[in-house]
Design a protein around this nucleic acid. Sequence first.
DNA 1: AATGAATGAGTATTCATTCAT
DNA 2: TATGAATGAATACTCATTCAT
Lengths: 194, 194, 194, 194
Amino acid sequence: MSMAEGRALRADARRNRARILEAAEAVFAAQGVSASTEDVARRAGVGIGTVFRHFPTKESLVEEVFLGRVRMLADKAAALSEADAGTAFFRFFAYAVEQAATQNAYADVLAEAAATGGTGGEEGAAPSAVGRELAAALAELLARAQRAGAVRADMGVAELVALLIGASRAAEHVGPEVRRHTLDIVFDGLRPHE
Amino acid sequence: MSMAEGRALRADARRNRARILEAAEAVFAAQGVSASTEDVARRAGVGIGTVFRHFPTKESLVEEVFLGRVRMLADKAAALSEADAGTAFFRFFAYAVEQAATQNAYADVLAEAAATGGTGGEEGAAPSAVGRELAAALAELLARAQRAGAVRADMGVAELVALLIGASRAAEHVGPEVRRHTLDIVFDGLRPHE
Amino acid sequence: MSMAEGRALRADARRNRARILEAAEAVFAAQGVSASTEDVARRAGVGIGTVFRHFPTKESLVEEVFLGRVRMLADKAAALSEADAGTAFFRFFAYAVEQAATQNAYADVLAEAAATGGTGGEEGAAPSAVGRELAAALAELLARAQRAGAVRADMGVAELVALLIGASRAAEHVGPEVRRHTLDIVFDGLRPHE
Amino acid sequence: MSMAEGRALRADARRNRARILEAAEAVFAAQGVSASTEDVARRAGVGIGTVFRHFPTKESLVEEVFLGRVRMLADKAAALSEADAGTAFFRFFAYAVEQAATQNAYADVLAEAAATGGTGGEEGAAPSAVGRELAAALAELLARAQRAGAVRADMGVAELVALLIGASRAAEHVGPEVRRHTLDIVFDGLRPHE
DNA sequence: AATGAATGAGTATTCATTCAT
DNA sequence: TATGAATGAATACTCATTCAT
């Protein structure tokens, strides 16, 4: 009441919230989102009631976890925009796919969130602010790479997102070597065409 | 109770098994594999006990359903092998992806089954006979296309499967137009390089 | 399939259903309807799943229990109709109240069910068949007693039900002597007036 | 933290206590006593901890709220004692019933409280001071009406309380017209006989 | 062989109560 | 003293699996 904070949670409450999200991220990645909320609580070292105080539904917890991952990718994309356009683009693509490979359960929802940000996604998923953020970052990255002649001009963010989704999903199922090789094939497809 | 037994009952049982598989395919496609076994039984018009007599676990039922889909793909691959190599290859790829797009719940397990068939899959899933069958068909299809010069030589079945998985997963999340366009990009990547 | 039964439950299933209802009756009477379903199952000696198989909601179980009580009262009312009208009426009233006194949690819902059967009840409770049955029996009982001059003419089933409810509820809170005495007062009020 | 403490805080606390009771009265009346304590706190505009500081159990809060209602009835009874004995008696009876009709969740506990005040109540509930107060007021009211010949002599406070409870409970279930009519019947029963 | 009733571990969610801030 | 975050026992309900009929 004396500090100027947004929805000020007490320090330890904020800490707990973070721990729960962390735990959920780990648990969902390991067992899929059908893992029990109790498992998340146990891993976070808090009572089950605490989880539900912070996230009133399991669904809301799942959403928040996905949002966290999307936000991270968006940050990464924004950061890379400054560098040499083509390199930045391909480096980001590889990075995003690599991430998804280790956090398997997320890949598609992550991508879905991105898709809601203004591409060609089909379902009426909530067009989250962060999703839009990511879409904007991707658009920038792609446009620069195209202007630099590193990426074919006849494609948009929708295709980019689709390829990210696909490559991420594929990455879950194969070893690192095949992953790299497969990515090279996709990259060749992305380059300008004679 | 007073009918000719032996063969008669066997035929009945076979019919039931088929009906259950059909029902499961429909139910899982509609509600995902987390649909209840009871739903499957109801749709098949049999008792729940009958389902478990034919498939001792739910998991075994799910597997069998997926196996059915994989078998279909393998057949398609084998059939196309006869045609012009390049055309066959790309036509099959597009077909498989299109299938996955409409049967979304299956895509990943389908892909997993394929992966077990001798590629670079990581988990220790049993390398099912059908999976191997599919892998063989894919190998044939790929080899012919490569020999015909329609597909780059520096890739194997592992990469093909990875791309199939990825493209299938991506297909679930985007509309048909983006899907086609994305596939073109991947196809360009698959063609022989400079 | 060979016997002519309504919704034929297997013999043991019917037995279980009955046991569950009995157990629920006892448990609800002792602890109120907020007693846990698990308690009911335990008392009935069946698994929790069995309770839910027979009564898909706790609410449905509660309803069924109440219905059982109402049905019993209706039977009693019908049986008494034959006897001397005045005696029958007052005997039934006393009996119903006595019942309620020992099965405290039910009194009002029992009465509510009766009220839905065509009296002046306020809420939109489902006009259950049994409730209507009871109302009809009550109407008959009352009309006969009135024709016999044993009960005042200026009242209807609505008032009778209200008095039954009230006397039943009151009976829960006082000892048998006071109960009898209180009932006498109400009976005096019910008799024709100078 | 720097204000005049001692009295000042006490006054604050007293105000909070009152607000909580008010809120509880409203919330319980609207949703029944199974409403959550958090709802009460929210409505009172205080933290949940504050509610539990003033009332160490939820039960104690519920009791206090009921006590308040009983106290009100006792006051009413005392006030009416001054008026014409017969009128006072019947007016009070009607008033008490009318109250219960609109505040349904309370009726039985209210009645219980009254019952503990020295009548024939069965359970070992603590004979609260207020309950005794009410019983005394009722005794006075009744005695006067009996002396005035307006109420039958062969009944005591126990029967009066029983009838109040019963009429109150009945009042919850029927519309105002039936309520009035039913009350007339009870009143006829209460009047001196032949 | 087919049935469907029975089972009970498991799940999300609520809520009275405690306690650090 | 007031706050509200944390707690965890309790609850209704689901579903894969077993087994008597």
